[in-house]
Design a binder for these strands. Structure first.
Lengths: 145, 145
DNA sequence: TGCGCCGGTCGATGTCATCAAGCATTTTTC
DNA sequence: GAAAAATGCTTGATGACATCGACCGGCGCA
């Protein structure tokens, strides 16, 4: 699926996506045009969805994170989903199997803010929140086969 | 904390971190050197932690995702944490308050693989897994104040 | 009022991305 | 099994870009 050079390119770009093509090329042992061509194909194949920036929420004042499980009351599933999407402090949310229909990550500046946000959901769903104390595994790639 | 130009720079880079300085500059209405200077300071301030690539796990064969809650048995907390860190299919894991000590995201190619991985934890912790059916909120930034 | 600082522009210079041409190796086809 | 075609690479030329120094205007402050 990915050969060794592709893997090293992806791993290199995960560390610094704004590296020059020239440097990327020499790190994986290719010429710039070849690296450019491979990069283009990784994007075309959908392996690389895009290039982005890693922003630290804490540096923006969001010193707290919570993982919130949400179980909409009967008939409220769509309302709740819309509500979640409209609350920008949810930086991600998954719809999952099981009783807890949604699991989301909330970035907040205080416990107060958590309370305010959950109040908006409280009459449409049961919620269960856990404050993030540490991140033993920071965002990383699964193994590149 | 962030002025309007900073915000637009960050938002632009979230969309495409490999854009040229020149284009970034003209999108926010600055000259290239000014944009370069601001970018450098956003990194120095820790607002921007780095530039990275958005890899699609599905394109690598990881067509399934699970959210796993993990409650280590008494005395097993550190062993479990080490184990989680060593399992590369965990793309992220948070240590949280409450009974479920850890919440992680697992990328797997089949239900079989889920079973295999959870077996490695089973004698040290209780786990509760939910398969991700959809992602109503894809990874996004909290509001930039 | 005058001084110094901050954040900006402009223009020159060296680095980089990109394109076309060509080459070696592998795959396909008859 | 040999000719043809397709891959994937390199090199060198050209135009675009990042970066640096010099300079400028507005603002806070003694």
């Amino acid at each position: 699926m990915l050969d060794d050079i592709d893997r090293r390119m992806v791993e290199t770009l995960v560390e610094d996506a704004r590296i020059s093509l020239k440097e990327l090329a020499q790190r994986v042992g290719l010429s710039s045009p070849s690296a450019s061509e491979r990069l283009k194909r990784l994007e075309e194949r959908g392996v690389i969805r895009g290039f982005t920036v890693d922003v630290d929420p804490a540096a923006l004042g969001y010193t707290l994170q919570a993982i919130v499980r949400i179980r909409p009351l009967p008939g409220k599933l769509h309302v709740v989903q819309d509500l979640i999407q409209q609350i920008p402090q949810f930086s991600e949310c998954d719809k999952v199997t099981g009783d807890d229909c949604f699991v989301g990550r909330l970035h907040i500046r205080s416990i107060d803010e958590l309370d305010t946000i959950l109040d908006r959901i409280a009459d449409k769903a049961e919620t269960s929140s856990s404050i993030v104390k540490a991140q033993p595994v920071k965002r990383r790639l699964p193994p590149l086969l």
